[in-house]
Design a protein around this nucleic acid. Sequence first.
DNA 1: CTGTTAGCGCTTTCAA
DNA 2: TTGAAAGCGCTAACAG
Lengths: 336, 336
Amino acid sequence: MAVSVREVAALAGVSLGTVSNVLNRPDKVAPGTVDRVQAAIAELGFVRNDSARQLRAGRSSTVGLIVLDGGNPFFTDVARGAEDAAMTRGLAVLVGNSDESADREQTYVDLFEERRVAGLLVSPAGDDLARLERLRDQGTAVVLVDRRADDDHFASVSVDDVAGGRLAVEHLTGIGRRRIAFVGGPSGIRQVADRHAGAAAAAAEAGATLEVLPTTSLSVLEGRRIGEELQARPATERPDAVFAANDLLAVGLEQAFIMRGSVRVPEEVAIVGYDDIAFAEAAVVPLTSVRQPAQDLGRRAIELLVAQVEQGQGIALEHVEFTPELVVRQSTVPER
Amino acid sequence: MAVSVREVAALAGVSLGTVSNVLNRPDKVAPGTVDRVQAAIAELGFVRNDSARQLRAGRSSTVGLIVLDGGNPFFTDVARGAEDAAMTRGLAVLVGNSDESADREQTYVDLFEERRVAGLLVSPAGDDLARLERLRDQGTAVVLVDRRADDDHFASVSVDDVAGGRLAVEHLTGIGRRRIAFVGGPSGIRQVADRHAGAAAAAAEAGATLEVLPTTSLSVLEGRRIGEELQARPATERPDAVFAANDLLAVGLEQAFIMRGSVRVPEEVAIVGYDDIAFAEAAVVPLTSVRQPAQDLGRRAIELLVAQVEQGQGIALEHVEFTPELVVRQSTVPER
DNA sequence: CTGTTAGCGCTTTCAA
DNA sequence: TTGAAAGCGCTAACAG
């Protein structure tokens, strides 16, 4: 079937140990020999068998990544960042999609464990991290993604949603708005609660009011529903700015305002969204939004993982928390 | 480090061959022994080493999938379908994102080849399939995804874009529209050309006209530009329906029509998009769109791959072409 | 039904 | 600088 080092060695007229050296430490081999071996490799189309390599070496050059939602752009960006960072280090990333199911997550953890991955990046589906702790205790590096580890059991990379909420509202007060509404829910979602907390703090500091308009989900439809309610109010009782917990809500608000033609954005009501989805820029009024550095998250997670692998168990577990950034567009600052 | 079959065998008081049998052919082992071995496995937390297994077995239980664009919902759906189908067969899917770069694609092909994957699912970045042919000649099963293989070199799964274009225009003529416009471009993109061809055929059959409005890209902005042009025309010179080559264009058209308030959708102009992106349903006027069975594509690709693996080289190469389906919403048929 | 044994392809001492 | 040999963990004969 596939050609092995043995055949390469035979063709090149050297021993298989030399072929291995050409592959792994070419500087330890005489230039002429290297050439001969490489010619043989090319001629036979030899491709190294990673299983054998890994079995012998005891360690793998693959890392696993388990994401909560493979269809979510945030996670595809995280994956992309991880992939890129891994590739420069000669690592490959196996991506699994748990779809928020603890069972599926478990299946992937098993799979990765059987493959003896160098480490695991995981955005956990539930609160039961016991299985991951066991893994880590057995020597597999584990980094939590998009979840701040509350204890010292795991390294983690996450984004500071409180800072994101603060950023949004500081921008709104900065452009002179004082009657601000926060649209979002359910409040049980940690991200929603954090963004609200940051928003509330920033509003209080600036002497602005923050009215909370709860939603049952983070969808365009819910945004439109709230938008309809707001535009039905007398102009004097409307907020002069809205911070939506995500972009879908914000787009729904925009639709309600623009479709009716009753509320001008941003003149009467400025709108800030969250996530900076691809669609934010293409909204009827391009949307100001809080962007999460998803690719950086993935990149950094790989770096923490590599550090753990290289420095072993004893390493201090880092918790990296990224600060989101504000992307200003016409939904808060009109085009000149 | 990790525990091996040897240690399990020692603890259970059997030989390592028996442990292997418990793992792979439990029915060949006495029930009592099975229990004892499994107790030992549980106690030691034994996890089988897949590298060793694969090295010995000569075959792998992983398949590689290389997609053109990891951020594109179409491909995340394909991946999801492939993952699900693979999982039920005990296969794992390694997903690589070529990002339309032939180089990146090559890197992943190399990676997968080193890992001796059972097969490769790939939506090729370029037209040079020579490398893939070599792979296939060496015995690795290859299935082309989202690209109809023009020859008998590869099995393939794709979606019939001509049928999709036909579907869209038949719907429009079916609701009585006769002056139809096709918005899309550049025409060099195969999907665009096919969708147009289907649309033209359907229009001709129904005795409708099909005006072509070319775009430089498939973006919301381009859609909005065309929309502005159309709404500036006298009502009598406007088409009574538009078929857009994708949903982004369609959303841009809608935005231009609705924002100006000058053209009613669907009364004056009906709009059909393509892809049925998540946003289509949430558009200001929910968008009628042509949906591609992306998950089915992924699932079927795995099935073709498995067939090749099981039946070997001699198998007749299948070309599965899916027919898209129309999702009707208010942009063509008003709510009652 | 269970134990023994021979490798899978590679890397890595250790000697020459 | 190169070659010979041992063995990673597992599976699949084959023998008992």
